[in-house]
Design a protein around this nucleic acid. Sequence first.
DNA 1: TAATGTTTTGAAACCGGTTACAAGCATTGG
DNA 2: CCAATGCTTGTAACCGGTTTCAAAACATTA
Lengths: 339, 339
Amino acid sequence: MKSKLTIQEIARLAGVSKATVSRVLNGRPGVSPQTRRKVEEVISRYSYTPNLVARGLSLKKTGSIGLVVAHTAERLSSHLFFIEFLRGINEVLDERGFRLVLATAESEDRYESSARALAQGGVVDGTVVLGVRRNDKRLRHFLAAGIPLVTVGRPIGFPKVDYVDVDNVGGARMATEYLLRLGHKEILFINGPRGHTASLAREKGYRQAFKPFGLEPDEALIVCGDFSFESGYEAVRERLARGWAPDAVFAASDLAAMGAITAFKEAGIQVGKAVSVIGFDDIPYAHFFDPPLTTVRQPIYEMGREAGLLLLLRLEGAGGEERLYRVFPTQLVVRESTV
Amino acid sequence: MKSKLTIQEIARLAGVSKATVSRVLNGRPGVSPQTRRKVEEVISRYSYTPNLVARGLSLKKTGSIGLVVAHTAERLSSHLFFIEFLRGINEVLDERGFRLVLATAESEDRYESSARALAQGGVVDGTVVLGVRRNDKRLRHFLAAGIPLVTVGRPIGFPKVDYVDVDNVGGARMATEYLLRLGHKEILFINGPRGHTASLAREKGYRQAFKPFGLEPDEALIVCGDFSFESGYEAVRERLARGWAPDAVFAASDLAAMGAITAFKEAGIQVGKAVSVIGFDDIPYAHFFDPPLTTVRQPIYEMGREAGLLLLLRLEGAGGEERLYRVFPTQLVVRESTV
DNA sequence: TAATGTTTTGAAACCGGTTACAAGCATTGG
DNA sequence: CCAATGCTTGTAACCGGTTTCAAAACATTA
């Protein structure tokens, strides 16, 4: 509970001025070797560390990065996405000595207000926004406050905002192609929410895959869900009830794929034998689901790292008027739910 | 990009002094109604918000709470634990206008250093530590810096540190009792890591359950794992290979239970029919595992809320010399993996 | 030895708030 | 009418750092 020492007290103990201690602390030149040694000795004896708040005020840099998350609890898949992403961004920030400040909320209104609180008040140097929407109000708060921004997913309506994204079109095309190449023709596509950026792109990829095979996607086999387990489950159950002869399913999330598989199981249909199901994300559970899930992997951890990196670059003045961005490729992970 | 206004400029615009603006901002008395109105008008016209860093320096309160997490990526189950916990603590902090600063790291060494960086430097008013160990070095950093602390899980070796915990003994006893009451006698107990606080408590609960039934636990059926899927899988596979006639399994984590079930499945043994398996945690996946998992639920979200609450209380001066703590009860969630 | 250049050092201002204290002013009572 | 009182307001110090600038100390050269 010994109250923290200030730079002033260290200065007194070392018999020098605050300015000199500050120079030593920051490795600045213009301090004689003897003096430097003396000050360092005092600093280490009292294991003094400077007050970062005061430093922040003086330098107008906080050393903190905000991470704004839509709804923490929205979906399980976003949970897992969030954790992986967090690991990635945390790693680069930690390496560079930056802290991560979280802004997230369950409800829509608190959600905007917590973003605003972060934007104003000058507690962060920059911020990463997860789960952007079209013309997201929160982005405006940060832009208005002049706080550098990186979004995850291309921010529609903000042509100058930096972002990281994954190649949703390519990933969905790859998955669909794979099913087509296996000989499947009737591929039920269980998409995410209508209008969601990723959903749009994945649908596009799904459609593109058919052309080289001289086939047309069946409009009746494209349905919207919400990435959830339930939406996959319902989509399949409903169609089976209507007498659909199942062939293959491409779900826009692993959870929906798991839901679909569960519906098949309940109907006594063997997934990975009679029908194929493919997911999207490669959440950690995918590989010990029964059957282990074939899916399109997103490099979430790397996206986290890259988001952090882009932001730090921007803070160092990189980019200028140019938009910084990076789009990651996806990867097909073949397991046992496809045949 | 309009640079932020300072209290000085607002004062000038309103024709008053900084002190008066400050009084208005903080709702302090001693400002005439007219002046107050005039200042408020200017504040809202320029949508001024005070710089929280400066305020923090002056008040010696940052409005930030640290959340120190062992290894973000350590185990999947901790991931899910982490997310739920985060939701809980975030909610109470958000309500009270506190921010959450994360300190977490993958590797052991960075891990301590990032905790220290948070402890010193005065960037947080208090902190919550997840995944404490015996005589955790990190705790000493916070204690030395005089920063209030709440741990999740009773901190062994720190008799005065506030904490929240779950009734591990009771939960494990309840699970074991349930299996015994179903008529099972040979209950394989797949525990967490040896020496882990929660492991010790759960083993104690397991043992306690046998007495009322006039039975003794079979020492050969108590094995240590690490809460992982693999550890559950291996424990069962190995025993089956040695000709064990399976009866029931109690795993100290849902993941290990899932691993155990997978091993049974591979051996053609029907879980929920021939044998019973029960887990611990009730992670979100438990209910759509196949079969849906019977488990002991921990109220993780509530523990998050409570941890935040205790910390805020402590910051307000509650407790004094007394230790603040709260131990949550567990709940048996019966699904289809037991019979 | 003086003049000059270079390095080391500290005083003071600043970052943007809060607050103790004193001053200014109007009201009230003796 | 003047002093005492209460309310409003501003001045200045402070929180703990960084940085500019000038002075001081020292080294170099003519």
